[in-house]
């Protein structure tokens, strides 16, 4: 499977990456090559193998439902670009208009 410039633009947008036309021209064949490798691996017959979600043969450890974290807001917000009355401030986002 080979990607078009439009595919790469879409992927860049989904990842919020700002790419110039020159970048897109550079990356389109590179990404297509990666997909070609994947396509190559796809040729292996895996019909008799169960898919794994994790290479470790372990299962998820569970934690007790207790509150262990303290309020460390001041430290976290010390490195935030802008805060006010305890809120992180970001450029306005309007989802529903």
């Amino acid at each position: 499977m080979s990607l078009t410039a439009a595919d790469v633009k879409k992927i860049a947008h989904l990842a919020r990456l700002n790419m110039s036309e020159a970048d897109i021209a550079l990356y389109t064949p590179q990404l297509s090559n990666i997909l070609a490798f994947v396509e190559h691996m796809n040729q292996a017959d895996t019909s008799h193998i169960d898919p794994i979600a994790n290479p470790l043969d372990l299962s998820q450890r569970l934690r007790k439902d207790v509150v262990t974290e303290k309020n460390e807001r001041d430290q976290f917000q010390a490195i935030a670009p802008e805060v006010q009355v305890g809120l992180y401030l970001v450029p306005k986002v309007i989802e529903d208009e």
Partner: peptide, 8 residues
């Protein structure tokens, strides 16, 4: 907030 959103 003017031109900004507050995040909690």
């Amino acid at each position: 907030f003017q031109d900004q959103s507050g995040i909690d």
